[in-house]
Design a binder for these strands. Structure first.
Length: 588
RNA sequence: GGAGCCUUAGCUCAAUUGGUUAGAGCGCUGCCCUGUCACGGCAGAGGUUGCGGGUUCGAGCCCCGUAGGCUCCGCCA
C-alpha cells in the first residue's frame, strides 16, 4: 500500500496514529540536523520532519532529497512543537515523523520552477510537468466538475449521450477540414468533423428525440487565445422543440453547471436581445453588457446637418452614431492614433471625436454643429466634464462595428471589467440567415446551411430578398464571449434543397454531398433543433483564465504544434506509399 | 496573408548616450547550520546576448534580413 492518507488528510485528531504518505517533494528545508520536507500530492501538503536523533539512517537519506523527487514515507503523526504550527496549511497543526523513507523516483534538475511566471512555450514543451501547477490542476478538476454536471443535468432531462464518427466526410461550407487519407480506398479522404451537425440531425430522423454529446470538433483554421484546432462542444439536439424549449434547457444546464462548479445561483431566464438590438446598441452580436457606453443614434439629428460629412453619409443611406467614453478626455496622442487605427481597420474612413475639457468642446468638427445638434448630443449622451465622444458615421453595420470595437478597447484601457465578478448572460436572436460574399459573389449561410429561416421571412426566399431573411437561430453570450449557438433546423427536403440552391450548391453536388440527408428528410424527419456550447470557452470563463490552453490538458501552440510531442511531424515514406500519397516537391 | 509586442545564464529579469571582464534573484554544485515553512550563512560553476549580415575604433544596445513565441485582423458554416 503506497499510502494510508493523502497529503491533505491528517489533522490534530490523527496525532499518534501511524500513517504512510506518497507524493512529491514540494520543498525541503535542511538545517543540517533537522530536515523538513513539504510532501505534496494532488490533495495538498503535509510537513514531514526528519530528526537525526530519532532515526539517523532515514535522516541521512533525507539530506539527499531534491525538489520533485517522488517518495513514500511511513511514520507517526505528531503534533508540531508549540508555536511552530502553520495556520496557512490545512495540515499545519501536525507533522509526520517517519520511521522509513523510500525514494520511488528521482527528479533531475527542473526545467523551470513550478511557482512564478514562465514562458508558455517552455511550459508547453514540458506540459506533463507544468500540469503539477496548482492552477492547471484546479482547472482540469473544475473542467471535470463541469462536464459531470452537464451529463447529470442532460441525463436528468432525458437526453441520451451518443458518440458520432470522428472519421467523417468533408463538406464544402464552413471551416477548412482536417483530412485523413483512406488506405483501403486510395485517393479518398475522410474529414474530421467540424461539428457533429449532420449526424445529430440524422439521429433525430432516427427517432432518438433527445441527443447530446461532449463532442470533439476539428477546424483547420488559424488559432487564437480562445481557438484551438481541436476543441470540445457540448452538443445538443432535440426533436419537436421550439427556440423557447432550447432556451429553457440551456439556461437550466448553465445554472446547474455554475452551481456545481462555483456554487453560484445564476438568474434565469436570460435576457434576450435581437441581433439588430445587440449590434445597434453595443456594436457587437456578442455584447459585453457589464459596462455602459452604449451606442446612441443621431441619424435624425444630423439629417440636415451643416456638417457635410455626416449629412452625406445619411443621404446615402448611412447612419450617425456615437458613444460617450466617460472620463476619457485625457486620451493621449498615442491612444488617439490607436483608436483611429481600430476605426480604419473595421472599415471607417476616419475617426471623429470631441473632448469635453475645461467646459469646452474640443474638436475641429464642433464649429459645423448647430446649437440643436450640440444640445441633442449633450442630452442623449449625458455629457459631463472630462468625457469624450467617438462618432461612427457610415453604413449601419460598419458604424456599429467600429463603435463596438472602440467601446471594448476603451473599457479595456479603463479597466471597466477588471476584477468583475459579474456574470452577464444573454440570448441574441434573429440573426440574418444569409450574407452576401462579394469576393466569391455568392450568398453564404451565416450560421450553417441547415438553419431554418424564420417562418414569417419565408416568403422573402422566393422573391430572392435573401439579405432580409432572419434565421431561427440563437447565440448564448456570457460577458461578451459567445459560449454557444444553435438553431431550429430545416426538416423538409424541399426547403433544404432550396437553401442549398441559394447557397450555390448544384443539384448534382447536393446529391453527392448531402444526398443522405435529403433522403433522410423524405422518410419522416421530425421538426428539430439544438445548440452547441463551447466547453473550453465556458471552462475558461469559469476558471477566470484568459486562454483556453489553460483549461486543456495538452493544448497546441499558435501554429497548431504540440511542443511536447513535436506534432505534426514527418512520417515514414512507407506510410505514405500505403496511402497512395506523394508529397509535392517543396518550392524553393 | 497582414499588424503589434517580445527573444540576454536552467528560470525570471537588469545592463546609463554605443564604451573596461554582460550583472542580480531563484535554481544548480560543495561546505556549514537541530524547528523551518520563500529557512539561513559561506564559496563555486553556469553566457556564441535567437541566428545571419551591416554601420562603428568599439554593438546586448543602432540598421537590414531571418527564425521562434504571444496578441490581434483576415479566417473560424
Amino acid at each position: 500500500m503506497y499510502r494510508t492518507h493523502h497529503c491533505n488528510a491528517l489533522r490534530a485528531a490523527d496525532i499518534d496514529e501511524q500513517a504512510t504518505l506518497s507524493g512529491w517533494v514540494h520543498s525541503r528545508r535542511d538545517h543540517g540536523g533537522v530536515i523538513f520536507i513539504d510532501l505534496r500530492d494532488r490533495e495538498g501538503l503535509t510537513q514531514v520532519v526528519f530528526r537525526p536523533e530519532e532515526n539517523a539512517g532515514v535522516a541521512s537519506q533525507a539530506h539527499h532529497l531534491r525538489d520533485e523527487d517522488v517518495i513514500q514515507v511511513s511514520g507517526r503523526v505528531a503534533p508540531r512543537l508549540p508555536g511552530t504550527e502553520n495556520p496557512k496549511l490545512a495540515t499545519g497543526a501536525i507533522e509526520l515523523v517517519p520511521s522509513s523513507l523510500t525514494i520511488l523516483n528521482r527528479a533531475e534538475v527542473l526545467p523551470f520552477p513550478l511557482d512564478g511566471e514562465v514562458n508558455e512555450d517552455l511550459r508547453l514543451a514540458y506540459r506533463y510537468f507544468d500540469l503539477r501547477r496548482p492552477q492547471l490542476a484546479r482547472n482540469l478538476r473544475l473542467r471535470h466538475r463541469i462536464t459531470k454536471a452537464t451529463r447529470d443535468y442532460l441525463d436528468g432531462a432525458g437526453f441520451i449521450e451518443i458518440e458520432t464518427p470522428i472519421l467523417s466526410k468533408s463538406t464544402p461550407e464552413g471551416a477548412r477540414d482536417f483530412l485523413v487519407p483512406s488506405r483501403l480506398m486510395p485517393g479518398k479522404f475522410y474529414a474530421l468533423p467540424q461539428a457533429p451537425q449532420q449526424y445529430k440531425q440524422l439521429l433525430m430522423v432516427g427517432g432518438i428525440e433527445k441527443y447530446f454529446q461532449i463532442a470533439k470538433c476539428f477546424r483547420d483554421e488559424d488559432l487564437r487565445a480562445d481557438r484551438q484546432p481541436e476543441f470540445t462542444q457540448i452538443d445538443i439536439e432535440a426533436s419537436f422543440v421550439r427556440p423557447n424549449d432550447i432556451y429553457a434547457l440551456t439556461e437550466g444546464m448553465l445554472a446547474s453547471i455554475f452551481k456545481a462548479a462555483r456554487g453560484l445561483d445564476i438568474p434565469t431566464p436570460f435576457p434576450r436581445l435581437t441581433y439588430r438590438e445587440a449590434v445597434g446598441t453595443f456594436g457587437s452580436d456578442k455584447p459585453d453588457r457589464r459596462f455602459g457606453m452604449q451606442l446612441v443614434d443621431f441619424t435624425e439629428e444630423f439629417r440636415a446637418s451643416g456638417f457635410k460629412l455626416f449629412r452625406g453619409v445619411i443621404e446615402s443611406g448611412g447612419v450617425v452614431k456615437a458613444i460617450n467614453a466617460k472620463g476619457f478626455a485625457g486620451i493621449t496622442i498615442g491612444q488617439v492614433d490607436e483608436m483611429t487605427a481600430i476605426a480604419k481597420n473595421f472599415g471607417a474612413k476616419g475617426l471623429a471625436f470631441i473632448k469635453i475639457e475645461n467646459g469646452e468642446w474640443k474638436s475641429p468638427i464642433v464649429k459645423f454643429f448647430s446649437e440643436a445638434e450640440r444640445s441633442a448630443l449633450q442630452t442623449k449622451l449625458a455629457l459631463e466634464e472630462g468625457d469624450l465622444i467617438f462618432f461612427g458615421s457610415d453604413k449601419w453595420d460598419i458604424a456599429c462595428e467600429v463603435l463596438g470595437r472602440l467601446r471594448l478597447r476603451v473599457a479595456e484601457i479603463q479597466g471597466l471589467t477588471k476584477n468583475s465578478e459579474q456574470l452577464d448572460f444573454l440570448w441574441v436572436t434573429g440573426f440574418p440567415l444569409l450574407q452576401f460574399d462579394a469576393a466569391e459573389n455568392k450568398w453564404n449561410a451565416v450560421h450553417h446551411p441547415f438553419t431554418r429561416p424564420k417562418a414569417e421571412d419565408l416568403p422573402l426566399l422566393d422573391v430572392q430578398r435573401y439579405g432580409e431573411m432572419r434565421a431561427e437561430a440563437y447565440d448564448v453570450v456570457l460577458n461578451g464571449v459567445e459560449v454557444g449557438g444553435g438553431s431550429i433546423r430545416i426538416h423538409e427536403p424541399e426547403l433544404q434543397a432550396k437553401m442549398f440552391a441559394v447557397l450555390g450548391v448544384s443539384e448534382e453536388d447536393q446529391q453527392i454531398m448531402f444526398g443522405h440527408l435529403l433522403r433522410a428528410f423524405r422518410l419522416g424527419a421530425p421538426p428539430h433543433g439544438g445548440i452547441a456550447l463551447g466547453l473550453d470557452r465556458l471552462v475558461m470563463l469559469i476558471c477566470g483564465e484568459q486562454s483556453i490552453r489553460d483549461v486543456m490538458a495538452f493544448p497546441k501552440n499558435n501554429r497548431g504544434q504540440d511542443l511536447m510531442s513535436q506534432s505534426p511531424a514527418d512520417v515514414d515514406p512507407k506510410q505514405l506509399r500505403e496511402l497512395g500519397i506523394t508529397l509535392a516537391k517543396k518550392t524553393p
